[in-house]
Write a protein that binds this DNA or RNA. Structure first.
Length: 274
DNA sequence: AGGGAAACCCGAACGC
DNA sequence: TGCGTTCGGGTTTCCC
């Protein structure tokens, strides 16, 4: 077994089944501790613990913003929301101030779900579709051709920004990536979906993929005081850059609120709808 | 169908 | 220094 640091952020390595992901595979959950009841989506922390103990990790993966651990009987789904973190380390590591759930594995290993703001949730379900069923396609799904995307967008009479955040439309975009993608495609966040051209739909799809790729390459964004190791926040073009020059045309970035969400855009590159 | 608002949280950043 | 207030992230739920 590879030498382990005390704790290690696990989310990134799970999808590929590399590193921590492969280290977890095959291990059995010996004991579970729930430090914040609401972290466990349902039905109760006691039932959750009773059910998960004894199960073996048979697979790891991701769907949209959910981390997925396949267990021998059930599937454990983890949503980090804003401030959540999944940490892997030795079971004798001190329990963090914000630890909400600990899973003790064999061989002295521990998987811990930490979350300062208590927004994150975990689900233990027989059928992951109970939780994931409503999600739209993955942005990198090959079936999502420019033509298919244009068909989907054109069918919607909705502002682009809330549409991109709608997980049932396309799964996996958050506020940062929606703003950055719209800037990349030179589309104004308030544009009605059904008014955009096929070319613009294709540009939007390309921009979504480009922004996600860059975010992944930079290990994600560490915003606020929540540090997770990534540095994408130093490369935002519009997000949280109100008043600063657009990297494309130097016009000051503006901030508006759309669907209760802070929305950043360049008023010159991203032309407002009539 | 789409939009708006509130609720869930709490550390940080602000105003006084 | 120490209060009180506001903010924002993702999602669900409810209401117009």
């Amino acid at each position: 077994m590879p030498e382990l640091p005390e704790v290690e952020t696990v989310a990134r390595s799970l999808e590929a089944g590399q590193g921590t992901g492969s280290t977890i595979l095959g291990r059995t959950i010996q004991r579970a501790a729930v430090a914040w009841n609401k972290t466990v989506a349902a039905p109760s922390a006691t039932a959750f613990k009773k059910r998960i103990v004894g199960q073996q990790v048979t697979g790891v993966g991701r769907r949209a913003k959910f981390i997925r651990l396949d267990l021998s009987e059930d599937v454990l789904l983890v949503h980090l929301r804003m401030s959540g973190d999944l940490l892997f380390g030795r079971s004798d590591s001190p329990i963090g101030k914000y630890s909400r759930l600990q899973l003790y594995l064999d061989d002295g290993l521990q998987l811990s779900f930490d979350d300062a703001r208590k927004f994150g949730r975990v689900w233990l379900v027989k059928d992951p579709e109970d939780v994931l069923g409503g999600l739209g396609p993955e942005p990198f799904d090959p079936a999502l051709t420019p033509k298919a995307v244009h068909g989907l967008i054109h069918a919607r009479k909705r502002q682009l920004k809330p549409l991109l955040l709608d997980q049932s439309f396309v799964a996996g975009l958050g506020n940062i990536y929606a703003d950055e993608a719209l800037h990349g495609a030179r589309l104004h966040p308030l544009t009605s979906a059904h008014t955009i051209s096929a070319k613009q739909s294709a540009d939007l799809l390309a921009a979504i993929r480009a922004v996600l790729k860059e975010g992944i390459r930079r290990n994600g964004a560490s915003i606020d005081w929540v540090y997770r190791g990534g540095d994408f926040q130093n490369h935002f073009k519009v997000y949280q850059r109100t008043g600063k020059p657009c990297p494309r045309c130097a016009t000051p970035i503006e901030r508006i609120v759309v669907g209760q969400r802070g929305t950043h855009f360049c008023p010159n590159c991203q032309i407002a709808p009539e």
